[in-house]
Design a binder for these strands. Structure first.
Lengths: 197, 197
DNA sequence: GACGGTAACATACCGGGGGTATGCGAAAGG
DNA sequence: CCTTTCGCATACCCCCGGTATGTTACCGTC
């Protein structure tokens, strides 16, 4: 066991983050006890407080990780298309699919706003997944595909719509629910096209 | 001090609910300590546990109250119109305005899903405010105003859109943000009209 | 109209868990 | 080699949710 000091430090940090992610996703922030996370990671509570300022600090680090992974998933899905409109649709579909992942669902969508506060949650969401949505909408406005308008309100509306839809889809048992949701989202997006204004 | 037994009981319960509502809205669920709520209500912690099963039980009762008041506000706004489409729009506008109330914002939109769990939150939302949205959409589908489709996915999308938009509007400082959001919402809704299908 | 019962609390207590202060051994640096 | 510092472990505090028990006053009953 071992390696250099920085390596060891990085290893324990990774172990804490990984175990924290597992437990936060499975049990929710409140029911997770920090000492158990540390123990499962092979260290004690003292180590956790050496790496993070508090239980919420560990949670914040986990949220940040998951958020950025989610943003990458969305961006990757969008990059597979050339048409900006199709990029937007693909990103939305990827987000809806990602919401079924308990890690995303429980940690990012359910607990994070309440634990970290809405302002901080929004800031983190902004520079990971929601940013891609805002950029895609901006491109479509500039190209004249959708009506000229401030993109921020639109971004919040669509972001919220997909957050909630993702939460719902994760609990839905009807197999055609994802397709129906994507179809409904398409209809809503079509309302943005310029000629409808 | 005062009245019959049932009256006294009801009075204490009301006091606990009122003080709980104040503190939950101001400080958030986690930072509220039950003994202080009871003390401010003129009783002790024992009384609170006589009326509610737990701290979460008191919170649940407060959420239920606020939810129903919110549902009434939305329904009242809608009833002022005859045209179903205008009823939908009015209800949405009323909801967005209500979200600026810290009681609604903090208790119902931010803490409730995390504290009570998404399933219970959704069930409570269903038989208060979200139900009106689903009914309005149902009417519009039946009347052929919007394209024939399952209303449940659409309800979740729009409900989520307005939840998030309300949270954002409450933190926004730009005075034209509400109007811009309503305009963006109108565009989205227009996408649902039958001829666009 | 005494009287037992019970409802509506108050009081006392417990235990879990987040946070902190301190100790300690091993790696890094001179 | 010797010391400093870093990366943890250990021991401890205390707040707060929950419970168990005591106490007072209302309420139906004879």
């Amino acid at each position: 066991m071992g390696g250099t000091r920085a390596e060891q430090r990085a290893a324990t940090r990774r172990a804490l983050l990984a175990e924290g992610r597992r437990r936060f996703a499975a049990d929710g922030y409140h029911d997770v006890v920090l000492a158990e996370v540390a123990q499962a990671a092979g260290v004690t509570k003292g180590a956790a407080y050496h790496h993070f300022a508090s239980k919420a600090g560990l949670f914040r680090a986990v949220v940040s990780e998951v958020q950025h992974e989610l943003g990458e998933r969305v961006a990757d899905a969008a990059r597979r298309y050339d048409d900006p409109w199709e990029q937007l649709r693909a990103g939305c579909r990827a987000f809806l699919a990602a919401g079924r992942d308990p890690v995303v669902r429980r940690i990012v969508l359910l607990d994070a706003p309440a634990v970290l506060g809405w302002d901080e949650w929004r800031a983190m969401d902004e520079d990971s997944s929601a940013r891609h949505l805002a950029e895609a909408l901006e491109v479509l406005v500039k190209a004249g595909v959708i009506a000229d308008q401030p993109v921020e309100p639109l971004t919040r509306l669509l972001s919220g719509a997909m957050n909630e839809a993702a939460l719902w889809l994760a609990r839905s048992t009807t197999p055609q629910a994802p397709a129906q949701t994507e179809r409904a989202l398409d209809r809503l997006l079509n309302g943005l096209r310029s000629q409808n204004d």
